[in-house]
């Protein structure tokens, strides 16, 4: 159970090399090894969506991916989005709409919503709701999140 492997990957633009237990998932690696605690773990089996982030620009559940599987990949976490400015309009819209309460689902929600926006998703509320249906939020009731995504797509909020 303590077998390890050395991996090298890019995290938020920085090259990182670490020796990790092969059983460690990507979320735990980012949180415990790199101190990137913005990635949150909610269910540890890919249902709640809290740990969603971008691996090679695709949305990924970081609890369902082993750290060793990310060897050679480029990972962007919520901290990376903030530092690079990517998603600034969406964050502004989330603030204006109060599309977050406790903030625990927010990093994953941003990752899923950005994926929808950046792949040309429309401002159709039902389509947005469908796209976000893999991200659980217990606080908001989702409406403000849908509003925020629409605001960005329709250009009402810009960075």
């Amino acid at each position: 159970m303590t077998q390890t492997r050395t991996i090298t990957l890019t995290v938020n633009g920085d090259s990182v090399t670490r020796t990790v237990p092969v059983r460690m998932n990507l979320a735990d690696f980012l949180r415990a090894e790199l101190g990137l605690t913005g990635t949150h773990v909610g269910c540890e089996h890919g249902v709640c969506g809290a740990c969603t982030l971008h691996v090679d620009d695709a949305p990924v559940r970081s609890c369902l991916m082993l750290a060793v599987q990310a060897d050679g990949a480029s990972v962007t976490t919520v901290e990376g989005l903030a530092d690079s400015g990517r998603g600034a309009a969406l964050r502004a819209a989330f603030t204006a709409r109060n599309a977050l309460q406790c903030g625990y689902c927010t990093p994953g929600m941003l990752a899923s919503a950005l994926d929808y926006i950046d792949t040309g998703g429309s401002a159709d509320r039902a389509a947005i709701r469908e796209h976000l249906s893999g991200n659980y939020c217990r606080c908001t009731g989702y409406q403000a999140i849908v509003d925020a995504v629409c605001d960005v797509i329709e250009g009402r909020v810009t960075a």
Partner: peptide, 20 residues
């Protein structure tokens, strides 16, 4: 707007499991 919003949106929350 809530003063906490930006922090939480930028991954700078301070949840218990974040403590090492």
């Amino acid at each position: 707007p809530r003063p906490d919003a930006r922090r939480l949106l930028e991954g700078r929350g301070r949840f218990v499991d974040d403590i090492q």
